[in-house]
Design a protein around this nucleic acid. Structure first.
Lengths: 146, 146
DNA sequence: TGCATATCTCTCGCTGAGCGAGATTATTGC
DNA sequence: GCAATAATCTCGCTCAGCGAGAGATATGCA
């Protein structure tokens, strides 16, 4: 094997690099830091997965300690991108939600790229789509946890 | 379309998130910062592409200004992960090269994940592999430049 | 019930990554 | 040669994120 099979690996890594740069660009364009953008993505993911979007979860996902987590949330709240609510079920916890404005901001910026990708996805046969899914799922697993 | 075609997009984003975390983990495990790891990756990419790995190029790729770039290189040099050489062709420039030790470090850490991915790649039919390539190439293009 | 312990978030002070400005050294064109 | 340009480095500063620990709520056990 080797170069033949490493091609896709390198391609994937190139994608992550580009995506990271674009994320940084989006951050800068909106007076944020990359961590803040990653935080918003995290919160949206949690919401989509119907997980409670708490401060603690956010910190864990971002690899920040509690002080840093508080700072991120402070910044996002100050910019009006998230709101804090005390969890009525467990009043130690703080629930976070992304504001509609922040969501629109993200859509405006990443919308075109996402549409393009959705387009390619649509053009794939079910078998091809499954191959992509297999590749990406393996990648996610290979890079997660241990 | 929608959810059907956004599935792969979300999956791709999840991969980039995991990869980012893993990168941070690698960095922490070796007394580095994520920027330093990104710098090493950049330098290896440049070498593979037979581009001159100069300090300036590195800074541009990482989105750092000259001061920050110097700092990154200082850190990496102090750790013995890169070496500086004055370009004999243009003595204003500094050529950077990643040391074998740093390369081994990376292989030890990312090798298993890469092997796993190469394995999936190998298991794909040429048509499937082409589909993955198409998807990733589009992604890279969609997230690059403007 | 009432106290000890665990859990979640926040505050404070500090370190250091990355920025802006400008100095330094090397190259190139006139 | 001498100005203009290019590549890198130095200095001082700001602020993201860390460690330590405080405050508030929840839970287990006597």
């Amino acid at each position: 094997m080797d170069d033949k099979n490493l091609e896709l690996v390198h391609l994937l890594r190139a994608v992550t690099v580009e995506f990271g740069l674009r994320q940084a660009e989006f951050a800068a364009a909106n007076g944020m830091h990359t961590t803040d953008v990653r935080a918003l993505i995290c919160l949206l993911d949690a919401t989509r997965a119907a997980e409670p979007a708490t401060a603690g979860l956010l910190g864990t996902r971002l690899g920040l300690n509690s002080a840093g987590t508080t700072a991120v949330i402070d910044r996002l709240e100050r910019l009006g991108h998230v709101t804090r609510t005390r969890d009525p079920e467990d009043r130690r916890r703080v629930l976070l939600s992304v504001t509609p404005e922040a969501i629109r901001l993200g859509q405006d910026f990443f919308g075109p790229a996402i549409a393009e990708l959705a387009g390619v996805s649509e053009s794939l046969t079910p078998a091809e789509r499954d191959a992509v899914r297999r590749f990406l799922t393996t990648a996610r697993a290979a890079f997660s946890g241990a």
